[in-house]
Design a protein around this nucleic acid. Sequence first.
DNA 1: ACAAAATACATAGCATTACTAGGTATTTTG
DNA 2: CAAAATACCTAGTAATGCTATGTATTTTGT
Lengths: 121, 121
Amino acid sequence: MLCILLYIYLMNETFVTNWKSQVKKGTLTFIILNILKGHEYYGYELIEQIKQHTDMDIAEGTLYPLMNRLKTENLVDSKWVEQETGIPRKYYCLTPVGIKTLAQMNAYWKNLESSIHKIIK
Amino acid sequence: MLCILLYIYLMNETFVTNWKSQVKKGTLTFIILNILKGHEYYGYELIEQIKQHTDMDIAEGTLYPLMNRLKTENLVDSKWVEQETGIPRKYYCLTPVGIKTLAQMNAYWKNLESSIHKIIK
DNA sequence: ACAAAATACATAGCATTACTAGGTATTTTG
DNA sequence: CAAAATACCTAGTAATGCTATGTATTTTGT
């Protein structure tokens, strides 16, 4: 009985979970840039947005280093905004380079999508 | 003039290239399993198939370790086939676990795809 | 009133995985 | 007969999401 449960666990979780993590690596930047298109968000809010839109749970330890990288690459810019109460928030927005790169990513994504559609069918 | 060329190079290649590499990490296993569905291929042939279907150039140093990993994870099986002439080929096929996992991946992919569509629009 | 949870930022080290660079061997092509 | 294509492989590197941890404030539950 224990073996069966272990089997089911392994079949349904382990491998697919790893794969999902890899998909995140490929699409997270893309998703974040798309969410930031036409709207500024702060870090914590971005995590919620990603969860809402894609059902992906992003750890804070994933997001903040990622946003720093995107800033270094000049794809996003950030600014601190003081709150009337509570901790100040760091808001992110797309740079012109970010907008341009996002357009290229969207084109690449559409291409990939149609390729995969042909393979799946 | 040199600065302008450098600028164009940086804008169009550097960042996007990295991103594409990340997308591969997320989708390559998925693509390979789909290609292997209902058809056996050997390694070198798989690289060509991927190139044809998705326009992705996969290095040999990427594929062979990947296929070994998929075999360790019991998603694919392999067998050596002697050729009348030339080097023997190692053919890969899906295992029952691989077929099951692929179905889950396809479902996950469709979900992700529709999520991203909503964000992009 | 006080503990717990949520909000909000951040970093260090780990695990995974595609890539670069190198190796071996055979067959075909110019 | 050299070069390219075919066909396999490995070692080490780079990139990046995750785990665990830390700090600080505000809100919520009892």
